[in-house]
Every structure is written in C-alpha cells, then in structure tokens.
Amino acid sequence: MQASIKIKAKQTADIIANCEVGEEAEKIIRPEMPPAETIGLLSDNCCFYDAVKILAHGLPKREAVWWACLATRQAHTPETNEDNINALTAAETWVQKPTEEHRLEAFDRANMTKFETPASWAATAAYWSAGSIAPQGQPDVAPPEFLYAHAVAGCIALAAVAKDEQDPDAYYKQFIAQGMDLAAGGRGNI
C-alpha cells in the first residue's frame, strides 16, 4: 500500500467517527490502524463501499472531489446526456479553481441532473465543500464538515455500478486505486 501523505488522520478511528460502516467492515476494522491499511484490508475483504467511504472522508476536499470526477468521467459513455457532461465539467472546474462562482455553478448543474447520476454527486460534492448551503438571500449555513465526503462516496458507488451493474467489484478496485494514488500525492492516474 502506498504512503498516504494527503490523509491527515493517523488512525482509522479519526475517520470512522465521521462516517458509518457496515457490519462486516466493523468486524474487520481496527481503529488504531492507519487509514491506508484499513482501506487495503477492507478492499481485500470485498468491503468496497466501506473502503470508499473511509477514503472519501480521509482525502482533502479538492482531492476527494477530483476523485469523484475521475470516476464519473470513466462512467460516462457516448450516450451520456449534456446535463451530466455539464455537471461533471462544473465539478472539474471547481477543483481547478475553487471559487464561489464555480461552486454555485456546480450546484446548478447538479440540480439539472436530478441527483441521480455520478455527475450529479460529483457536482454536489463540489458544492458541499465550502460556502453556504442556504438558499441565496438567506443567512449563511455552512455545510457539515464531511458532507462533501458522503457525496463523493455515493458518486464512486454509482460510477462503479454504472460501469458494471451486475459485478461492479473490478471498478470499485480501480476507483480505490485511483483514490489511493491521490492520497499518495499523485493525480489519480493508474
């Protein structure tokens, strides 16, 4: 397992305090383990979604949203509609330049996709990463600290299933490898 310089948590307990894991994962996880080891152990035991959740919560916001973008881009097909392409582009734009304008554009594009696709959730993750989630003109309401990670994890799961609805495991493994490359300071290329 690669070094995970981008994951600041020293032990898994620091991450699972912010996300729920399944019963099988609970039996496997040792809270004192470094997160990278836990992610590898969960993957080895086919607890892919739990590994994704821990990785999404461990990565910094921009890297996590970029991870969602990478998975979404791979899930797109020639039949992907314009709304989903635009939602993904908005999320990628926010990662490259995380301005308030780009964050709000990502949310507008997510709304157009009705929150049903990987692109929807990549764009939502960008929106939930900063700023206020209150309607414009209302007092500011900061998103909960790890709300973006929930959107990222959902995006990764939807992307894996979009690639192979019957057996998404190979795509989960591929996406986890990309996320671990980002955690190691890479660009998510594998």
Rank of each mutant, 00 (worst) to 15 (best):
W121M: 10
F107R: 15
W67M: 12
A36M: 10
P144E: 12
L59P: 03
A13P: 02
F175E: 04
K97S: 14
G22A: 10
A87I: 04
I176N: 07
Y172S: 09
Y127A: 03
G58K: 05
A3D: 07
C69M: 05
D181T: 06
K61P: 00
S43R: 13
I190V: 14
H102F: 15
A106W: 07
F107G: 03
R103P: 08
E165P: 01
I29V: 14
C19M: 05
A159K: 03
A183E: 02
D14T: 00
H102Q: 09
E23Q: 15
A183H: 01
S120I: 05
E100D: 14
Q2Y: 09
L88E: 07
A25M: 06
E101D: 10
M112R: 12
T117Y: 10
E100N: 12
Y148L: 05
T93S: 13
V65I: 13
L59N: 03
T80G: 07
I5L: 11
A151I: 02
A149D: 05
I28G: 02
A162T: 11
K10I: 01
A125P: 05
K61Q: 13
D140C: 11
K163Y: 00
P135C: 11
L88C: 10
A177C: 02
D14L: 11
E24N: 09
P31H: 01
G179K: 09
H57N: 14
M1K: 00
K163A: 15
A157G: 05
K8P: 01
A162D: 11
I190P: 00
Q166L: 08
D14E: 15
E63W: 03
H150E: 11
L147N: 04
L59A: 11
A123E: 04
A91D: 06
M112W: 03
C155E: 06
E20S: 14
A87E: 04
P118N: 11
P135S: 11
H57M: 00
E37W: 09
R103A: 02
P78W: 02
A184E: 10
L59W: 01
L59H: 05
E37A: 14
A56T: 02
T113Q: 10
A51I: 09
L42R: 04
M112E: 15
P118S: 13
G188L: 04
A17I: 13
E79L: 13
K97A: 14
T80V: 11
E165Q: 12
D44W: 01
F48K: 01
L55G: 04
